[in-house]
Structure formats: structure tokens, C-alpha cells
Amino acid sequence: MTLRQLAAPPTSTGTGAVLSCRGLRKSYDGRLAVDGVSFDIGKGETYGLLGPNGAGKTTVISMVVGILPPDAGDIRVAGLPMTLRALAAKSRIGYVPQEIAVYPDLTGRENLRLFARLYGLRAAAARARAEEVLEVVGLSGRAGDRAGTYSGGMQRRLNIGAGLLHRPDLLILDEPTVGVDPQSRNAILDDVTALSGRGVAVLYTTHYMEEAHRLCDRVGIIDAGRLVAQGTQRELTALVGQCDRVRLGATGDLASAGEALERLGSVRGIAVGADGIELLDTDARTALPAILAAVSGAGATVRSVTLEEPDLEAVFLHLTGRSLRD
């Protein structure tokens, strides 16, 4: 499969897709933030939008949930067009914004009841549903406390809970684990997996490769507003071919080291960071002595070496020549 095929819109017309986006484009003050993004998400599918900070993930999400009108393109949720006023389409979506968008001065329970009511539930149903969701996100014990007094992880969970109240067909999570302790993060990822198992379609943005790796059936890699590739993880890693990913923790003149490495025949991609160099190499095991020699020859000192099988991080490096972390 070629790169072009992967980045091109899926051939299926999206009938039956829970979410279908075609040719989304958005620019701010003449700067193109999102450029020709198209993808589909089917029932029960988890789709990851993977890209570094500022790649345009949140802009895509804002257009999908209907709070930002696209300059061009078409969004359909369960076949319904999404616009600012598309209330029917909006009621199919559960949205978990990147910020902790709950009212700190209301209790957890009050927050959920409020949002449930706004999703159209009647008062009694909203009360019952709020209790269920509190149970799901593990906040029943603190439901009567003000959300402002919760720990960061609890607030994140409440933030997610608010998107589940109306049993949406499509759950959209915008970097839901930012600033969360590892334990809470695990719990959140488990929740998403469970929801997906129940047939909920999930759109998940992240800049953590591991999360995309763990959760997503399909991944779209976004960089500088463009969807550079999408497909299953197997399809994507196949793009890198037989390359290994090498991480060099190094100090010294990394720029020269990078240039020296580029001259090595086996190196396919390279990204120079502040504290080291990442590179793709067709046969890292054999080339490692040459790599290390090139680096030290350029005046840098190698402190650590990590060698990994091709993964999404390697794909990103391969496609963009940059590391996800930067």
C-alpha cells in the first residue's frame, strides 16, 4: 500500500458511518490550521487522531462537534449534517473537551444532572443517569463535593462522565489524559475501551503514541493541519517497512551529529531534539557501531541507546521527519 492511498479518503461513501468528514478546511487569519482532512468512523470503532501539539487536532474536533464552522468540507454525524445549529446531530455526540469544562462551584452530582438536562433528559431521568455515570467514572463517593475540590484526575473523570450522560453514539475525547496521574490515566483508557466494546464509536485525539497504540482500531496521523496517513496500526507501521527506531540520548553538538547521521546509507529518517536524536534505520543492529561512531565523530557524546520495533512513533518520524514529542 502506498502513502498516497493511505492518506486518501476511504473509498466507502460513509453510509452507515457514525461520523464522516470530507475535505475539512479551516484557516485563522490566513494561516491554514486544517487542510483537507477526511475520515470516517464506524459503529464501535475507536479512531485515534495522533499528532504533536498544534497539529490541528482540536480544530478538527471543534468542527466535528459543531462549535466551529469549517471554511470548507462536510461533516455528517449518523448521516445528519453538522452545523452550529444542528441540534439533532449534536445530541448524538458526547464531547469531552480538552479543558476541564465543568463548574467548579457545583458538586459532581449537580454538574452531571445539569448536563444531562441540557442533553434533553427529563429531571427524573437526569437524576438517575447522573448516579449511573458517577458510578461508571468512580466518583460516587465524592459526588456531593464541589468539583473544584477534586484532584486533577477526578476532575478529568468528571469531565469524561459529562460526555456519557445521554448514551451518545459517538464519543469525542480531546486529549483527555493531559496532566493526569498514571493510575487515573489507566482508568480512563479502560473506560474508553469498555465503551467501545459496547458499540460506541470513539474519536480520540492524543499526542501520546502509547495511548493511540493501546486504544485505537484505526489511527489518523495529523501534522501541520494535514492528515498525512490513516489506517490500522498494522497498515501504518507497514509504511515504515523494516526500519527500526533508534533513540540516542546524547549531549554535545547534536546538529552536526544529525548531519553526520544523514550521510549514513541505512538511515531513513532523523529528528534532532534537545536531549537526543531519533532516527529510523533499515538495519539498526548492524549499523549501530557506525551510528555511534558518526555521532561521537561529530563531537557529541551518546549517553543512552534505545532500539525499538517499528511503532506509531516511528511512522510519524518516517512521514514527517520530526518526533511526536517536539
Binding site: 445549529r85 439533532a88 445530541s91 473537551p97 480538552q98 476541564i100 469544562a101 441540557l118
Partner: peptide, 15 residues
């Protein structure tokens, strides 16, 4: 500023 406006607008609530 707190992000709740975005959440409200993404809900089936008329702008």
C-alpha cells in the same frame, strides 16, 4: 475561559 462554553455549544442547545 473555563471551557464550559465550548461544552455547552457542543450540546444540543441552541447557540
Amino acid at each position: 475561559a473555563g471551557g464550559t462554553l465550548g461544552r455547552l455549544l457542543a450540546m444540543p442547545v441552541p447557540p
